[in-house]
Simulated scan of single mutants.
Amino acid sequence: MFLLGMAGGLALLILGAEILVRGGSALARRFNISELVVGLTIVAFGTSGPEMIVSVVSAVQGSTSLAVSNVLGSNLFNLLVILGISSMLSPLGVDKNTVWKGIPFLLLTCAAVFLLAEPAAGCPDTIGALTRFDGYVLLCFFAIFLYYTFSIAKSSGELQETGKSPPEKMSGFLMSGFIAGGLVLLILGGRIFVASAVVLAKKLGMSESLVGLTVVAAGTSLPELASSLMAAYRGRIGMAVGNVVGSNIFNVFLVLGVSAAIRPAPLSPGDFLDNAAVALASLALFLFMFTGKKRSIDRWEGAVFVFAFAAYLWFKITSS
């Protein structure tokens, strides 16, 4: 029963990703904007929907450890697994705006979590907490990020797509239907998968924090995985990379910001370790821009990312 639910959710994710990428590509062509911008906004916001749902519901219900571990785990999965597998499928060229602005924003999200977390009095199992005020600060950073994103559309150095096929021409009604339908299928598929996987994981005796880092994080990241793989396959490289970068920034500044604003979120030592892992992965992504083919994630670099995630996951499971 659980496996059937996971399979059904995965099928909806794949279908939703195909529809969303087609609609996003058509939108980029219709309004003459970079697919990087579409990936950083519409696609990233849509594929961050599962993280938002899980984290907000967790905050409302008081399961703040699940909310935090979900965000950090999803970001690590996005960087190491999604970019890793996507670049192994097709080397990913990266726009200079992403290199010098997008990736530094990723590092800023990690620094914000470290710097904003305050000592949590009366909580012996935590070493810090994001207060409601911290949540508002993260939301302010999110507003700055949106301003930056739309400034990309006015820049002259946007990535020129060299896809395998030109973006499709669609009517406004059909294009809106593709984007909305793709987002609905992605979120629905993610919820079905997570609901089935969480019940299965708990039956296996996994802790809430470990469930958040592994099963929930991977499940809520499946929309990003499906969308990025589909975008890479179709040659929409700006959307593939922009989707991951945008989703990670959305997850911390928006999802974690809203969650902390609802209920202060204590951070355990494991959460700080996860945040450090995300920071190292973001730094590695930046360094990879200058190794091999410049401003590109090559196949071997993607393999390094996937191996690093497997090693870190093994460490977390064996040390829990």
Rank of each mutant, 00 (worst) to 15 (best):
G5C: 11
G5T: 07
G5Q: 08
G8Q: 10
L10E: 05
L12P: 01
I14A: 12
I14E: 02
A17P: 06
E18T: 08
G24F: 03
G24L: 06
G24C: 10
G24Q: 04
A26I: 09
L36G: 02
E51D: 14
M52W: 10
I53G: 00
V57S: 11
V60Y: 13
G62Q: 09
G62E: 09
S63E: 14
S63F: 14
L66W: 00
V68W: 00
V68I: 14
N70R: 07
L72K: 02
S74F: 02
F77L: 03
F77I: 08
V81T: 12
S86F: 02
M88K: 04
M88P: 03
S90I: 06
S90P: 02
N97R: 15
T98S: 13
T98K: 07
K101F: 09
F105Q: 07
L108D: 01
C110Q: 02
A111Y: 07
F114E: 11
L115R: 07
A117Q: 03
P124V: 10
G128F: 08
T131F: 05
L139R: 05
F141Q: 05
F141M: 13
F141V: 07
F142C: 05
A143C: 14
S155H: 11
G157R: 12
E158H: 14
Q160N: 12
G163I: 06
K164Y: 12
K164C: 08
M170S: 07
I179V: 15
L183K: 01
L183A: 11
A197G: 10
G205H: 05
M206E: 04
M206R: 04
L210F: 14
V215G: 01
V216I: 15
A217V: 09
A217K: 04
S221L: 03
P223T: 04
E224P: 05
E224L: 09
M230I: 15
A232F: 00
Y233H: 11
Y233A: 10
G235T: 08
R236G: 01
M239R: 06
G242K: 09
V244D: 01
N248Y: 00
F250N: 03
F250G: 00
L254R: 00
L254C: 13
V258L: 13
V258D: 08
S259M: 00
A261H: 03
I262A: 10
L267V: 05
L267N: 00
P269F: 04
L280E: 00
M289W: 01
F290A: 13
T291S: 14
T291W: 12
G292E: 09
K293N: 13
R295S: 14
W300K: 12
V304N: 01
F307K: 06
A311W: 13
W314M: 12
S320I: 12
